[in-house]
Nucleic acid binder design. Sequence first.
DNA 1: TAAAATATGTAGATCGGTCTAGAGAGGCGC
DNA 2: GCGCCTCTCTAGACCGATCTACATATTTTA
Lengths: 208, 208
Amino acid sequence: MTGDHNSTILCRSVYILLMVVKGDQTRTRLIDAARTLVEARGYFGTGLNEVIEAGRAPRGSLYHHFPGGKDQLTAEALVVSAREIDALIRSLAEGVTDTRELIEAVLDALADRMEEAGYAKGCPIATVALEVAATNASLQQVCAEAYDGWERALADRLVADGHGRDHAEDLACSLLALVEGALVLARARRSRVPIERARRSAAVLLGA
Amino acid sequence: MTGDHNSTILCRSVYILLMVVKGDQTRTRLIDAARTLVEARGYFGTGLNEVIEAGRAPRGSLYHHFPGGKDQLTAEALVVSAREIDALIRSLAEGVTDTRELIEAVLDALADRMEEAGYAKGCPIATVALEVAATNASLQQVCAEAYDGWERALADRLVADGHGRDHAEDLACSLLALVEGALVLARARRSRVPIERARRSAAVLLGA
DNA sequence: TAAAATATGTAGATCGGTCTAGAGAGGCGC
DNA sequence: GCGCCTCTCTAGACCGATCTACATATTTTA
């Protein structure tokens, strides 16, 4: 009886797990498709038809997994992309000796990523942030939080380098701006030169 | 006879002028409407229905003045906006003593403009640049040229400050990146703090 | 059987773009 | 000097395509 009960629980758990995994597979494919498309063409430039085609899912699945529609899908895609960049910063931060090296590593990684994608990638947040800043409060909030997280990661490393907290936050914000701006210029020009130049300026800001 | 001829020419000239002016008024209204909407919501986020409504013009007029359709209208709107910023930089450059003051003045002006518009304005080029970098060569070209012009204006002022040409171009590119990035962060967060912080970092880059 | 997830179909609006009609002006022949 | 022509620009109806969103099966699994 206890055995039956346990095996029932087990079966049920496995089922739920499988369902979750399977459901999550479709869900994940949709989010990944949205991430790629939104980064390449923005919020308004990405149609849900493209998303479900790229995500190989029927229309109904999209609204099953994302009852909030396009906004929910986009918000979740932005959160995943933001976390990925955050993890990139924090993982690179462990293998370098100071923040200057960290910024250079981040710029290199983002530049490579951008070139490899034929300039369809850059900052996964910026395009949407600019499109919705004045008209969509919830997505604007998601974008703002993404930047907050990255800035915190940079500030943490600056503090570890010995900077005071206040100065670290100031500097982290400017470094983030420099990186974001370099990505904008690089994409607009389809050239990584602005990123190389930002590297040197970042070094100056960090007192190299 | 000569009088008749002259008055005929005069009438004709006046007519053509009026027609040109009238045509240009509609044309200008459409471009202005497109400028505002595109800066606020980007290329894909701006519908031609909104443009003709804001520009108080019928559809026929739009396609009369812009036979190239949405792309032509957007391209011309970007060019006008780019020239406006270029003129802003060059006019501010005349009233300051060095490039540091110029950057600070530019940042102040852009931040005011952004706040006054409720964060519906920022950089008039960036949103479109990010949306079309990988998919629309002609608009991407327009964006790239806009940034080239602004960078040249900054580099000119740096050369006037005594910097060597090569170093001036490097520095101008990074300063532009810093400004662009600060605008992105400021819009995303709906706060001018990132711009204030970029001010200080710009001063550092310019050796203040 | 019940619930979850998938698979379509389609509604209703809006998209960019095209088309034709007409208003308003001067030129021009008679 | 009057009617007619042409030309520019305005005006809006209209087109097929696409958009987001929802509704309705069908399949899958315990």
